[in-house]
Design a protein around this nucleic acid. Structure first.
Lengths: 159, 159
DNA sequence: CCACGTTATGTTATTATATAACATTGGCAA
DNA sequence: TTGCCAATGTTATATAATAACATAACGTGG
């Protein structure tokens, strides 16, 4: 499926994992097997995955005993908290963060057709939001910007 | 509760309802009693309300027979579809739209402390997002921008 | 090494959110 | 009136998330 943009997906996953390992190590966090597996599964798909899908995949995939919801959610919380994945609220799902070290000032474009979610770093948008917040004297803790529509690939395929 | 900013809330609700009635009438939509009641309840609170809270409120409030989830969701869908309310994804909740006639290019600021959600129209943010989308050749269907943080009022109260 | 506190995971049950599928009602126009 | 269509009602169930408590694994100071 996916693999739309001719990028080497296996490599892409591998590098994301290495990246995550480096980040965890540098911050004194433990990238346990479970965390690593879930991160890998999330990354394996470029489309956001729900917690329950992940549970199933874990069960099949890794021959694990069957991981219960709380375990998955805790793990996802960990990954979100440390910026390794994003929660996609419009889909109740999770997707890998493509630049986990940075400040997470990004826009998530979600394609209606192929469900691919791509994260775009946009200082302009970020700045506009913060100016707007400042005008309200609103102190930003966390922002969430999700745009739903049709990606370039799908638009091309469906004229 | 709320009534933070010294605005006359009753009036504010009333005008929102009148506004909605006008919009429906002009578009040939039916603002039925149920729709009207739910819209009123949503507006009555400036904080986003969940579907199930609304159900309870309907039951107590309007002496109605007890409205089941599908009915509430359908009604909420109608109101969202025609821009009379917004869905707040970060909270799985709904809040009145303060300018239902316009193009809905707005930012929703949600206060962590008092749960108030306020909608701010910001052409700058809107523009930045669309420029960013254009760069990706992404066709925007719907966008969602929610910012969580501390509102001016709460920041003032808690030094 | 081991006793202990801490962090991570397991387990069971439950709550919260949302929709599917089909039945009934009510307005309205031919 | 009849017949259609939109709105609401009803029953059951799917999907998402958390609470509360139990156990295991990890590492540090003694």
């Amino acid at each position: 499926m996916s693999s739309s943009k001719h990028h080497d997906h296996k490599r892409c996953v591998t590098s994301a994992l290495e990246n995550a390992a480096a980040i965890c190590s540098s911050r004194g966090l433990r990238l346990t097997p479970l965390r690593r597996q879930i991160l890998e599964l999330v990354w394996h798909s470029h489309r956001p995955l729900g917690a329950y899908s992940l549970m199933e995949m874990l069960a099949e995939h890794s021959g694990r005993k069957l991981v219960a919801p709380p375990t998955v959610y805790r793990t996802l919380d960990f990954l979100v908290e440390h910026g390794l994945i994003h929660r996609v609220h419009t889909l109740n799902a999770f997707v890998g963060c493509s630049h986990p070290a940075g400040p997470h000032s990004d826009v998530l474009f979600i394609c209606r057709e192929c469900q691919t979610a791509s994260e775009v770093h946009s200082p302009q948008v970020y700045k506009a939001i913060h100016i707007c917040a400042a005008e309200q004297q609103f102190k930003v803790v966390q922002q969430m910007l999700e745009v739903v529509g049709i990606c370039a690939g799908c638009a091309a395929r469906k004229p």
